[in-house]
């Protein structure tokens, strides 16, 4: 509290010292420190983010998660596909290998090392979330740009398609798309999650593009005879990306959850030798009464990662919102 007041006073003092010639233009001086006088949206947003504890907590969570995913193959004590503890599994008695030396979390129902599977599962989760978001973002950018740039009937057609897609609950839509494929794999999960996100991105981008299209600098560019293509890609689109970027961090969280849900429902990869948290959760439900820890670990990881992305996304949205600028 006191320190923030001290910095505020410092700042006032420095402004006072610089004096009123802060914005002297044409005399040759420019503003005394031209890079401070006006601060771009991105820079000021970053300044606010840096001080936001919510952002820091979320960023640390994601950072650890990414680090784990990268290092997983090196720190995992065992091969996650090998049934090393199979002799301790007893189907009849609902017995599963307990935590023991070298196996901190014990084994799963097939006798595979649970700890190693948890570690390597982070890779799949990150891959699915990132790819699904990128594909969804890409599709949304194409559709949104089409609608926002052309307007008229192109806009109407694209937006009606988007409306139809949005009217179906997202998970139901993802399940339907996942079920369309003859052979389920991790890739179909990615595609299903991505397609669900496309209309959300498209509508968001189209909305901002329509408002940017009416702005003064676009009128000024038209008055200069700038070609339509350049107007769209240089003057409208780059100014419309802010909300889309924020949305994509939030979509990362949704993608983690949706992908887990699809795997849980059995629409993930048929082969479970590559561990995936949602799939592990799904497999664990048979043992939920006797072995709740099998469900606890993957569920906990999914929650923590999704929470991390949500916290970062929310704090970015706040930081980039011009109404919140002080």
């Amino acid at each position: 509290m006191t320190s923030s007041r001290a910095t505020k006073i410092d700042r006032l003092a420095s402004v006072a010292a610089r004096g009123p010639e802060f914005e002297v233009g044409p005399d040759g001086q420019g503003s005394p420190n031209g890079h401070d006088a006006g601060v771009s949206l991105a820079v000021s947003a970053w300044r606010r983010l840096r001080r936001n504890p919510v952002f820091i907590v979320g960023a640390v969570m994601i950072g650890l998660f990414v680090l784990l995913a990268v290092l997983a193959p090196f720190i995992a004590p065992h091969d996650p596909a090998l049934r090393l503890l199979e002799d301790q599994v007893s189907r009849a008695n609902n017995e599963i290998p307990p935590p023991q030396d070298g196996y901190p979390l014990g084994g799963d129902q097939y006798g595979r090392d649970l700890f190693s599977r948890m570690l390597l599962g982070s890779q799949q989760t990150l891959l699915v979330a990132a790819l699904a978001t990128v594909i969804g973002l890409g599709g949304g950018l194409v559709l949104g740009t089409l609608a926002g740039a052309f307007g008229g009937w192109v806009d109407s057609v694209v937006m009606r398609i988007v409306d139809v897609l949005l009217s179906i609950p997202s998970l139901l839509l993802a399940v339907s798309i996942g079920a369309l494929f003859a052979e389920q794999s991790q890739f179909t999960v990615i595609l299903a999650v991505a397609i669900v996100q496309i209309p959300i991105f498209a509508r968001l981008l189209r909305g901002t593009m329509l408002s940017v299209r009416e702005s003064d600098h676009v009128l000024a560019a038209k008055a200069l005879g700038v070609k339509r293509r350049a107007i769209v890609f240089r003057h409208i689109l780059p100014n419309s990306l802010g909300p889309v970027i924020v949305q994509s961090t939030l979509v990362l969280a949704i993608a983690v959850l949706d992908a887990a849900a699809l795997s849980f429902l059995g629409l993930g990869a048929a082969d479970d030798s590559t561990p995936e948290w949602g799939q592990m959760l799904g497999n664990a439900q048979d043992f939920f009464d006797s072995q709740p820890h099998l469900a606890f670990w993957p569920a906990g990881c999914i929650i923590v990662v999704a929470l991390g992305f949500t916290l970062v996304g929310e704090s970015m949205r706040e930081a980039l919102d011009p109404r919140q600028r002080r």
Binding site: D216, H217, L219, L224, P238
Partner: peptide, 27 residues
Amino acid sequence: QRQLDERRGRDLGMVFQDPLSSLNPVV
């Protein structure tokens, strides 16, 4: 509009009222 685009900026120029909002902020 296409024919006008050939003339706007070359034969006809325009300066607008608000210099900040008339410049593209990200370019």
